[in-house]
Amino acid sequence: MERRAALKSMAMSAAGLLVLPAWANGWNKTSVVIDQPVLSGRQQAVLAEVVDTLIPASDTPGAKELRVQDFIQKMIEDCYEADVQKKVALGLDSLDTMARQTYGKDYAACEPAQRRELLLKVQALEDKEQKEYYNLLKQLTIQGYTTSEYVMVNHYKYTMMPGHYYGCVPVSQ
């Protein structure tokens, strides 16, 4: 039930995309044509499973269901330098390679437990550079998930207009 509500509200937020009036046109990225997406189709598929593995569905929707992978892709494309973009793409490839070496199948085809094992392995790497892409993806996954409408409204009880500030109240729970 809760999941269905989440999917519905997701659809609504897509319709609520930021539309700026004509005077702000100069700020839109209309002139930018992306010849090639930063991530290949295969890399995108791995990304979606990484997101799903980091924050899976349970009795509430997981990050993948909340389309956090789309948010991450937009962030990577618009807000990061080319070298970071490349690191993310190569990182997702390396994860796929690791999956094939360890379990004999693509990352996306692995069982959830196997996908989790692989991420834990990357997270435990000593070499910071090697897991740079992972740290970024994890950070963006958490950001995308915790700022999603579903989580903000249902779990953090976000309201735009609280209407008050009480400076000293007992801790309830």
């Binding site: 937020s13 995309l17 937009k74 962030m75 618009d78 807000c79 700022t147 409408e149 903000m152 735009m160």
Partner: peptide
């Protein structure tokens, strides 16, 4: 134009594209 937007309605969650 942004006065009534919720946090999740900003495509980059507030960050300005590079």
């Amino acid at each position: 134009p942004t006065a009534n937007l919720n946090p999740w309605e900003f495509g980059h969650r507030g960050q300005v594209p590079l």
